[in-house]
Write a protein that binds this DNA or RNA. Structure first.
Length: 556
RNA sequence: CGGGGCGUAGCGCAGCCUGGUAGCGCGCCUGCUUUGGGAGCAGGAUGCCGGAGGUUCGAAUCCUCUCGCCCCGACCA
C-alpha cells in the first residue's frame, strides 16, 4: 500500500476525551474514529489490524474443527422468550418492533439463535459433537461505554458454540477451546492469564476468562505466583492474614460518637483487623446480618449466592430491627440469621455492643455468637492463597475472551434434543466461547507502546514493513524505494510505502506512531554507498544493510 | 441510574466572572525557500460559540430547559 493513497489521518495532539492509552493511540495514529458513545468507525489501518486478528482466530478455530457460519444480528423475540432471557435481561438489550408490530431485538449474543438451529438440525448422537462459530456484530446498550474500543455498544465478536452428547464430550470441547484460546492470544503477542470466573447471566456451572493485564482493564484478578491459582475477584477465594490473638476478657468500652471501624480503631488505637464489621442487609423475606473482619470488605456477589438478592438496610430499619443505632451493632444475642466470614472463626474481637456509644471488646466467636460461616470477603492484595498459603497478587486486566460450560440451559427450553445410542431422547450439552478482536487489538496496544506510539506485535500489525524514502525528490531514493516495495511484496510481506512528499521528521514521527514493526529508512547519503537502514520499532535498533540484502534481512 | 467535568474552526485551547457581535497554536489552501526526527517566510480559507427559550437596545458571555461527550460509581454473555 502507498501511504499517499491510504487514508491515515494521524493527529499531532491528543484528543481531549481519550483517557486510556490504547484509545489515545488508536485515535492519534488514525486507526479509529468515534461516531457516538460506544460506537466506533474502524479506519483502514484499524480494520487491517482486526483482519489479521480475525485471520488468526479463524486458523485456530479451524484447527479444532470449528465451522464458520453467520447468523443474523436481528432476532425475533420468541426465541429469547423461550429461554426467559427476554425478561431477565433488562435495558442492555436493544429492542424494537418490525412493521407488523412483532417484537424483535438486536443480538447481544447468539446462544438462542444457534440453539434454535441445533434444535431443528441435530437429531442423532451421530450428528455430535459439533462446534459452530461466527465472527460477527453484537449489540448491547451498555450503561457506560468507556475506554475507547474496550467497552462499546456495538462490537465484533468471535463466538463459538459446542454441542455434545454428554459431559465428558463437553469437557473435550471445552478443553479444545481453552487450548485454541491460549494459542490465539500467544500468537497475538499478548500477556494473559486464564482465570476462574463467574458465569453470570450466561448460566452454567463452569467458566473461565482470559485476562490481559493492563491498567485500562475493568476487571481485577487474584493471582498466586506459587501454585498458579487465578480467579476473577468476583469469586476469588482468599485467606486474610492471621492476626495475633489478644487475650481480652469481655468488657464494654465507652466509644462516644465513634461509629465506623476506622473511627473506633483510631480511638482505641487497635488495628481494624481486631474488629468485626456488622452489616445489616434486607432480603425479600428477612433481614440478615453479615459479618466481615474490620480490615476486609464485604463481597456482595458472594453474599448473594448464599442469601439471594438483598439490599443494605436503611438507618431506620437498623433501629427497628436491631433496636440500636447503626454504628453500634454487634453479633451478640441476635435473633436474626447471621452469615460470617470464615476468617472470623478464630480470634477475639471488638464489635458494636448493641448499645448506644458502646463497643464490646473480647468477643469470642461460637461462644458469644453463632453464625453460618462462609467466604464472603473481597480478596485483596496480600491475602493468602486459600490453596497454598502464598501471598496473592491483584492485577487489573482486560477481559479478552471467555469460555462457558452451559450444559442444558438453552437446549432444554429450546427443545434441542437428540436420540442417543439407545434411542433415548436427551438434551444436547452445550458450551459457549467468545473472543473480542477489538479488545485484543486494544490490549496489544496497552501492553506494547512507548512515548512515540504503538509497537505492534508482528503477528497483528496492519503491515509488516514500512519503507521511508526520506527525500522523494531524489530519483535514486525513489527508485530504490519502488524496487524494495515490489521485491518485499513479492515475498509476501505486507508493505506500506511512505511515498508522501513530506519532510523526514514527519515520516519518522508518523511511522513510530502507527507502529509498523520494521522500518526501512532510505537516506540519500547511505544510498550513495549502497546502504539502507533497517530499524526495529520495538528496540529502536538500526542496522545498515546493503540494498541487495534487504529482502533476506527483513524477518516476518 | 447517582456523582463530577466539559461542549467556541478539522484538532488542542483562550475569551465567559465584569454583556458591546470571536481569537491563539497546530492542521488545511497558494507561492518561494528548505529537506535525517512533526521546517521558515509571505499570503489565504474556515465558526448555527451543542440546541431551544428567556432577560437585555445588544448574549459565546446572564437565567431556564434540553441534547451530547468524558470521568468515578452502580451495572455489565
Amino acid at each position: 500500500m502507498r501511504f499517499s493513497k491510504m487514508f491515515i489521518p494521524t493527529l499531532r495532539e491528543v484528543p481531549a476525551d481519550a483517557d486510556a492509552v490504547s484509545h489515545r493511540l488508536m485515535l492519534r495514529a488514525g486507526y479509529v474514529r468515534q461516531l457516538a458513545a460506544g460506537l466506533y468507525i474502524f479506519l483502514p489501518l484499524g480494520w487491517r489490524a482486526l483482519d489479521r486478528i480475525n485471520a488468526i482466530l479463524k486458523e485456530e478455530m479451524e484447527s479444532i474443527s470449528a465451522q464458520e457460519i453467520s447468523m443474523p444480528v436481528l432476532h425475533p423475540a420468541e426465541v429469547w422468550q423461550q429461554t426467559g432471557r427476554w425478561n431477565t435481561i433488562g435495558d442492555e438489550m436493544f429492542r424494537l418492533k418490525d412493521r407488523t408490530g412483532r417484537d424483535m431485538c438486536l443480538g447481544m449474543t447468539h446462544e438462542e439463535i444457534i440453539t434454535w438451529l441445533a434444535s431443528r438440525e441435530i437429531r442423532s448422537y451421530r450428528d455430535l459433537p459439533q462446534i459452530w462459530y461466527q465472527i460477527q456484530t453484537k449489540l448491547r446498550d451498555e450503561a457506560r461505554p468507556k475506554s475507547g474500543v474496550l467497552r462499546t455498544r456495538e462490537f465484533i465478536m468471535k463466538d463459538s458454540y459446542s454441542f455434545d452428547a454428554d459431559e465428558e464430550s463437553l469437557d473435550r470441547s471445552y478443553q479444545l477451546h481453552a487450548g485454541a484460546y491460549h494459542k490465539i492470544f500467544q500468537r497475538c503477542g499478548l500477556k494473559f492469564h486464564q482465570v476462574e470466573s463467574d458465569p453470570g447471566m450466561m448460566g452454567g456451572a463452569v467458566s473461565h476468562e482470559f485476562m490481559a493485564p493492563s491498567p485500562a482493564g475493568e476487571d481485577e484478578v487474584a493471582l498466586c505466583d506459587k501454585c498458579g491459582y487465578s480467579a476473577n475477584v468476583e469469586l476469588a477465594q482468599s485467606v486474610p492474614l492471621k492476626i495475633k490473638s489478644e487475650d481480652w476478657e469481655f468488657e464494654e468500652v465507652h466509644t462516644p460518637e465513634k461509629r465506623t471501624v476506622q473511627e473506633v480503631s483510631n480511638f482505641l488505637k487497635l488495628s481494624p483487623a481486631y474488629f468485626i464489621k456488622s452489616i445489616l442487609v434486607i432480603t425479600d423475606k428477612t433481614p440478615v446480618l453479615a459479618l466481615v473482619r474490620g480490615d476486609q470488605e464485604l463481597h456482595e456477589k458472594k453474599l448473594t449466592k448464599i442469601i439471594g438478592s438483598h439490599r443494605p438496610a436503611q438507618k431506620t430499619e437498623v433501629k427497628e430491627i436491631l433496636s440500636v443505632e447503626a454504628g453500634f451493632i454487634g453479633p451478640m444475642n441476635q435473633k436474626i440469621r447471621i452469615i460470617a466470614d470464615s476468617c472470623l472463626r478464630e480470634g477475639v474481637y471488638i464489635s458494636g455492643a448493641n448499645k448506644q456509644h458502646y463497643h464490646a471488646k473480647g468477643i469470642k466467636p461460637e461462644k458469644d455468637f453463632k453464625a453460618e460461616w462462609h467466604d464472603i470477603h473481597l480478596a485483596k492484595e496480600g491475602d493468602a492463597c486459600h490453596k497454598c498459603g502464598a501471598k496473592l497478587r491483584i492485577e487489573k486486566c482486560i477481559e479478552i475472551g471467555n469460555i462457558f460450560k452451559l450444559g442444558t440451559k438453552y437446549s432444554v427450553p429450546l427443545k434441542a434434543f437428540f436420540l442417543d445410542e439407545n434411542g433415548q431422547e436427551k438434551p444436547i450439552i452445550m458450551g459457549s466461547y467468545g473472543i473480542g478482536p477489538a479488545r485484543i487489538a486494544a490490549a496489544a496496544i496497552e501492553q506494547n507502546n512507548d512515548k512515540d506510539g504503538i509497537v505492534w506485535p508482528k503477528s497483528i500489525a496492519p503491515f509488516d514493513v514500512e519503507i521511508l524514502p526520506l527525500n522523494m525528490n531524489d530519483s535514486k531514493t525513489v527508485g530504490v524505494a519502488e524496487k524494495l516495495y515490489n521485491d518485499l511484496r513479492g515475498k509476501d510481506f505486507e508493505v506500506l510505502l511512505d511515498d508522501r512528499d513530506e519532510r523526514a521528521g514527519v515520516k519518522f514521527k508518523d511511522a513510530d506512531l502507527i507502529g509498523i514493526p520494521t522500518q526501512i529508512i532510505l537516506g540519500e547519503k547511505n544510498l550513495k554507498e549502497g546502504f539502507v537502514e533497517i530499524k526495529d520499532r520495538k528496540t529502536k535498533e538500526t542496522v545498515k544493510v546493503k540494498v541487495e540484502e534487504v529482502v533476506e534481512r527483513v524477518k516476518k
